[in-house]
Simulated assay, not measured.
Amino acid sequence: MLPYLLVLSLVVFWIVLEKKSLNRTSFWLPLIVLTLFAGGRSYRVGTDTWNYTRNFNNQLSIKNFRFSEDIEFGYQTLEYIILSLTKNYFWLLIITSLVIVYCYLKIIKRYSVNYWFSVFLFITLGTYTFFFNGLRQGLAMAIFILSIPYLLEKRFIPYLLICAIASLFHITALFVVPFYFIVNLKIKPIYKIIMTFFGSLLLSRLLVSYIASTNDRYEGYTKVSEEAGGYLTLGFYVIIMIGTIFIGYIYKIKDINFQKLIVFYTSGVFFIIPLAMLGTNPSGPQRLLNYFTWTLVLILPIVFKKINNIYISSISVFAFIIYFILTTSKFSNLSPYIINPMFMVF
Rank of each mutant, 00 (worst) to 15 (best):
L278P: 01
R136F: 07
V263Y: 06
F131R: 05
F236P: 03
L289P: 04
I32E: 01
I262S: 10
D216F: 06
L6P: 09
S200P: 11
V113W: 10
S42K: 02
T96L: 02
I273R: 10
I245D: 13
I322D: 12
K330Y: 15
E226V: 15
Y104Q: 04
Y80I: 05
L121F: 13
I250M: 13
L152C: 08
V45W: 00
S204A: 13
L36R: 05
L135W: 01
V208G: 00
F156Y: 13
I95A: 15
F122G: 05
C103T: 10
F346Y: 13
I162H: 06
F90V: 14
F304C: 11
I247C: 12
L78N: 10
R66T: 10
V224W: 06
M241K: 07
Y237F: 15
S316V: 07
N88H: 13
I187K: 15
M141T: 12
E227A: 14
T172Q: 03
V113S: 15
N308C: 07
S200H: 09
I32G: 02
R110P: 03
L78Q: 09
G138C: 09
I171L: 11
P30L: 03
S26W: 03
K109S: 11
S329F: 10
G284L: 04
A173W: 01
G220R: 11
M141S: 04
L8W: 05
Y191R: 06
L78T: 13
F131P: 03
S167H: 00
S42Y: 01
V176E: 01
F175E: 02
S213N: 10
T328N: 15
F13W: 15
L161R: 14
R217N: 12
W50I: 09
N308F: 11
F236K: 09
G279D: 10
R41D: 00
K63V: 01
Y191I: 04
F122E: 00
T196Y: 00
N133A: 04
L135K: 05
I193N: 04
Y191K: 12
A140H: 08
A164M: 13
A142W: 00
L98T: 15
S42M: 05
Y111N: 02
L151W: 09
I194P: 13
G268D: 03
S167Q: 00
V238R: 09
G220H: 11
G199C: 02
K306M: 00
F65D: 04
L105P: 00
G138L: 03
M241H: 08
L10E: 05
F90I: 13
T266Y: 06
L234F: 12
Y52F: 06
Q137F: 06
P158Y: 09
N57G: 15
L160S: 14
Y4L: 04
D216K: 10
I302R: 11
L29N: 07
I272T: 07
F13M: 11
V269D: 00
L278D: 03
S329Q: 14
Y75G: 04
G39F: 01
V33N: 05
R287F: 05
L31D: 08
F246A: 14
K306I: 02
Q259L: 08
I100M: 08
Y150C: 01
I190A: 05
S314E: 03
Y218L: 10
